[in-house]
């Protein structure tokens, strides 16, 4: 038997009895940022491959969501800061070893890019849009000329944004649940599937919908593989990671993770999409809404459970 106790009574707020420093803001941002990354990556990819006509919604309409999601995410991040007036210090420093610094600078690039991309397509939503000033038309002309370059920036920074949301957590050696490099690819895949779900919700073109249901299915398959792989990794690792995995294999997070994130968020939408591709009528909003819900739950559960997981000494 071994028992440890703080005889001096350490009860630091938000640190004891278990870490609780990050609340709803961080997982919400990870979800919004990941979804925006997915939307922008898909739009840039299909634009660069010249499929703009086939996947009109994905390339020109869904990206309107991205700046909204990113701004909401940034607001959530700002609310999370405890020393708010100093937030600008993020942009007077470049810290290559800090994933959060990478993220801040990535957002600095991709948020304006997402606004420009939406502005270039504003007439798809408001056909009689007028920029009022001549110089704005000049800027529009400039970006239209270099639209391919813009799409490349969007694709590359979209991937960085999607992966970074996972790496942000996996860089913390102190929290064994997060300390796995699978989280980067897993969150990227989850973001891409949320991005595909957004197009599924907005598109009215059956051919495009079919294609995006297929994309979603493939990504859900990848996510399931990554989740299984993640748990294999934990169970084959050190005691602290075995303990971390146990939180999901019989511990406190078992029900929420497997029911909300895996069954409702991955397996049920995958099944519904298979049925839909097999010509069974399914209400169109159900699979993408479940995918978005699962993607959000995945972040909430991983962020919360990760803070509970710890080294034992």
């Amino acid at each position: 038997m071994k028992e440890e106790l703080f005889v001096s009574g350490r009860i630091n707020h938000l640190v004891d009895p278990y870490l609780n420093i990050w609340h709803w803001q961080i997982p919400l941002y990870l979800f919004l940022g990941g979804m925006a990354a997915g939307i922008l990556c898909i739009a840039a990819l299909y634009y660069l491959r010249g499929r703009e006509k086939d996947y009109y919604t994905a390339v020109r309409i869904t990206p309107f969501l991205a700046p909204i999601l990113l701004v909401l995410g940034l607001v959530a991040l700002f609310i999370d800061l405890r020393h708010k007036l100093y937030f600008w210090k993020l942009y007077t420093n470049i810290r290559l070893q800090s994933p959060m610094s990478w993220g801040a600078w990535t957002l600095m690039v991709i948020t304006p890019v997402s606004f420009i991309w939406s502005a270039l397509h504003i007439r798809d939503i408001f056909p009689r849009w007028d920029w009022k000033y001549k110089w704005i038309y000049e800027i529009e002309k400039f970006f239209n000329k270099y639209k391919r370059a813009l799409a490349w920036v969007m694709l590359i920074y979209g991937i960085i944004l999607g992966i970074y949301t996972g790496i942000l957590l996996s860089a913390f050696n102190a929290r064994p649940l997060w300390n796995t490099s699978i989280l980067g690819p897993l969150f990227l895949a989850s973001g891409l599937s949320a991005g595909a779900a957004a197009t599924l919700l907005l598109s009215k073109n059956p051919a495009e919908r079919k294609q995006f249901a297929r994309i979603d299915l493939v990504i859900i398959g990848i996510e399931l593989f990554l989740i299984i792989h993640m748990f294999m990794g934990y169970l084959a690792s050190t005691q602290v990671q075995i303990e971390a995995a146990r939180m999901f294999l019989g511990g406190d997070f078992t029900m929420s993770f497997w029911i909300f994130a895996v069954i409702l968020g991955l397996l049920v939408p995958a099944l519904l999409e298979i049925l839909e591709l097999g010509k069974v009528h399914i209400p169109a909003v159900v699979p993408p809404v479940l995918v978005l819900f699962g993607s959000l739950m995945l972040r909430f559960i991983i962020v919360h459970a990760g803070q509970v997981s710890r080294w034992l000494y």
Binding site: N12, R82, L90, A174, Q307
Partner: peptide, 26 residues
């Protein structure tokens, strides 16, 4: 203190839980 934004990354990164958020924000 005048460079800290209070993001909490260092608190999460410490395996000894030696840091805490000061009520003043940093």
């Amino acid at each position: 203190q005048n460079k800290c934004i209070g993001c909490g990354a260092c608190i999460a990164s410490c395996p000894y839980d030696a840091r805490y958020p000061h009520p003043d924000g940093y």
